[in-house]
Structure formats: structure tokens, C-alpha cells
Nucleic acid binder design. Structure first.
Lengths: 130, 130, 130, 130
DNA sequence: GTGGTCTAGACCACC
DNA sequence: GTGGTCTAGACCACA
């Protein structure tokens, strides 16, 4: 967690959890780490983890079984994808296009960098498998 | 100015000024509007404009002559481009790639949307010329 | 704080903080007083303290943890010394030499006054220890 | 003149005039440059030069003959020395000593640097004579 | 006219 | 509790 980032820590934690779910590291109905454990792992105040979990419950990404712990919601992946896609197409992409134009960056360069990204990404996955 | 945006107003003003410089509407050594004038134009408190100008001075995008006013720095365009490119390549682009991967969005779709963006952008410029 | 000094109050506060750090009264990673607390202690407006802290953050003398407070940066002492030495050798010392020459003041007199300064300084420290 | 310096321009001009007098480049009863001429030479607004001259008149460093111009006062050198010495001993020197102490700079180093300064100063004067 | 500083007081998000 | 932002209004020095 980055304590000096402009993004709130509880949102950083929520993103951390969402990434775990999107990459299927945590699957639907899986039990996710307890508030205390995650707080220790991420070196933050348990209240802050609690707030992130509450936020994710509200979004129906996770749910809580009293006395048992928090679990990944059945359609967590769909919900997260929905939110992120909206953010992506309505905010990030227009901003990207504006930058390409103002900074005189060609679309070709983006394509090349994306290809490189894919290659290094695949390579890393292969290494992890071995 | 967007008063409900999460981004601070003074940063929005700074971006507003940078855009004026990048599009060459304001050129190096030009005098830019006084704190009070811009405050009236943008309907904000003069202190808020002052804060934006202070921030831009620190970044060496503008400079101040005692009692005369603020002026566009000689290499303002280079400085702004530098900052924005760094932000673009180090944050926005990796974020884009990560999104494409996690959200299962094809690169082709981005390309189509960019072409559409360019068309509507050109169209608008032609309308402004007339 | 000296309200009639030509030097801005927020800069006086910044100097106050730097002196605390240089004398090791506040050490690296220590939490420094909150904006509101220092404002009460120094009898100034919290905004003024905030401005001093912003300035020091920009200089990387202190840093901020979200919701926790401001802390002395790891190399604060080095940073401050660097700035002050630069100011000293590039401005103050040439100014001193120019004065000695134009005002016909002998270097010996400076030496005598410095010895007296050291004596009174030591004396005061001894008194504080007791 | 430095338009971005914290010191007011009219004070910079006043210092400029005082230096000329202290170095005896301009002698008592000499006519000094007209407001217009000095304004052109220093690339500033004539009003600003006027303000500097008014300030120096008030200090009895220069005086004005109506329709003729400004002249160096008989005891200009004494007056200037007086002011500067006061500033020197009451402000600059204590500040210097405090810096030496906090920055751990030995007095010996100052002495060496002063000797070097004198040598280069003499050398330059010899060159100017030739 | 220009910027620069300061105050008082408010509201907000965050930990 | 912490900082961060904004407003309204004041005063000052400077060109």
C-alpha cells in the first residue's frame, strides 16, 4: 500500500482484492483473508481493511457469513468487470485519446508497446507454471 | 471548472492553463491573465487561481515579473510534454494494458474507437474554422 | 513568530521546523506536531502552518502519511544542510566579503566577535543542561 | 536587475547606486544619471528609478537640484557606511555565526576563502588598471 | 494595476 | 483525530 498516493488506502485495498478475483486467484465462494490477517499482510490499520471490505460488500463483490468470514460473491467477476468497463470507456479511454493527440504520440507506438507487453506477460506466466 | 470532480479545482485550473499552452493559444513569453481576471472568468476564488499559478511556477511552466504579472516560460511546452509523457508511459499506459487483459477487451476495439475519435475531432476543428 | 518581520510567517515556521531537525530535537521518522497543534503553539492560523508543511514536503524535508500526520524524512538533515550550505557559500559569504571590503572592516574583528559568540553559546548550553 | 528576486527592484537600484558611491566611482557632488537614462540602462520602468532616488534622498545619500538633476551628497559615503554597518553587525553577522555552528563549518575555512577572495580581487584591480 | 500573505471559518475524506 | 481544499475578505508592498 502506498501511503503517499493520492488514492485512498481503502480503495487501494479494494483494488487489490478485485485484482485477485479477476485473475481467478480467489474464486467464487472462496473464503478471503480475515480483516486482521490482511491488515497484518498489508501493514495497515485493521479499520482500513474493514472499510474496504464494507465497500466491497456494498458493491456485492464479497459477502459476509457471521462468525465465519468474508467470501467471494458468486458473480463477483461480472460485477467488477462491469464497474471497471464503465470507468474504462467513459473516463480512461477519452483521456488516453486526448493525450495521444496533445502529446503527438502515434497510435502505432501504442500497438508496439502492447505487443511487447503481451510477450513479457506470456513469458512470465510460462515461468510461473514451471 | 467542475466543482464535483474529485480532482481539486486548482489542479483543474493548472490543467486548463497547460492545455492553452500546449495548443499554442498562449505562447512563450505571453502574459497570461491576472489572478483576479482568471478568477472572475472561471468563477472561482482568486486564492484558488493563485494556488494554481504557484504550482505552475514551481514546475517552471510560468514565471512571474514583479508587479507586472505571470508569463508563459520559454520552454513551457517542453516541460508540460515531459511531465505528461512520463505520466502517460509510466502510469496510464500500463493501466490500459492491464485493463485490456483483465477485462478481455481486444486491442482492435481500441483502434476502432480511436479512429472514430479522430474523425469527430477533425470534424469539430473544421466547424471551428468556418 | 515575528509578525513584523519582512520574512513571511510560513517561512519562519519552516525555518523553525528545520532548526528542530538540525539540532536533532526531532529525528528522522518522528511524527511532528499536527497542523492544528503547531498552529495553537505558535499562535497562528492553521492554514499558515499548513503552508509551511506543504513547502517542506516539496523540499522532501518532511513527508505525510494519510490520516496519520507529518513525519521527518529519512535524510531531512542532509537535505536541509544542502540547501543552507548552498545559500551560505553562494550568497551569504560573498555578501560578507563584499561588506568587509566596502565597509573597511578587518577580518580580525570578525574573528574576535566569533570567539565571543562561541563562548556565550557554550555558556548557554551549560546552563540548559543544569 | 532581477525581476524574480524577492528583493524589491527599487531597493536593488538603490543598492546599485550605493555601491557606485562606496567604490568612489561616483564621488560627492557628482551628477548621477538622470531617471530616464538609468531606467533605460537598467531596463526598468522610470517610475521605479524615481522611487529609488526618492528613497536615497530621504536617506540623505543624494540630493536634487531642480531642473539640473540628482547629485551625490557630501557625506554620502558616511551615511551609507553607517546603515550598512548597522545591518551587518546586528543581522548578517549573527546569522552567519548561527550558520557556521549549525552547518558545522569551521572558521578556518572562512579565513581561507577570504584570502582567496582578496587575491582574486587584487588581481582583477590590477588588470583593470592596465 | 499586479502578486503575496494572512485570517477565520467552513466542509470533506480519510485513518 | 489527521490533512486538504475552498471561500470571503482583508491588508500590504510593489510597478
Amino acid at each position: 500500500m502506498n501511503f503517499n498516493d493520492k488514492q485512498a488506502i481503502y480503495l487501494q485495498i479494494a483494488d487489490y482484492v478485485c485484482d485477485k478475483i479477476l485473475t481467478a486467484e480467489w474464486r467464487p465462494e472462496d473464503k478471503i483473508p480475515s480483516v486482521r490477517d490482511l491488515a497484518i499482510e498489508l501493514q495497515v490499520n485493521p479499520n482500513t481493511v474493514m472499510r474496504a471490505y464494507e465497500y466491497l460488500q456494498q458493491l456485492e463483490v464479497i459477502y459476509n457469513k457471521r462468525g465465519i468470514g468474508h467470501h467471494v460473491a458468486p458473480d463477483a467477476k461480472g460485477v467488477i468487470s462491469g464497474f471497471r468497463k464503465q470507468l474504462f470507456f467513459e473516463n480512461e479511454l477519452p483521456q488516453l485519446f486526448k493525450n495521444l493527440e496533445l502529446l503527438n504520440i502515434g497510435f502505432g507506438e501504442i500497438q508496439i508497446r502492447f505487443d511487447n507487453y503481451l510477450k513479457s506477460s506470456e513469458k512470465q506466466q510460462n515461468e510461473n507454471k514451471q
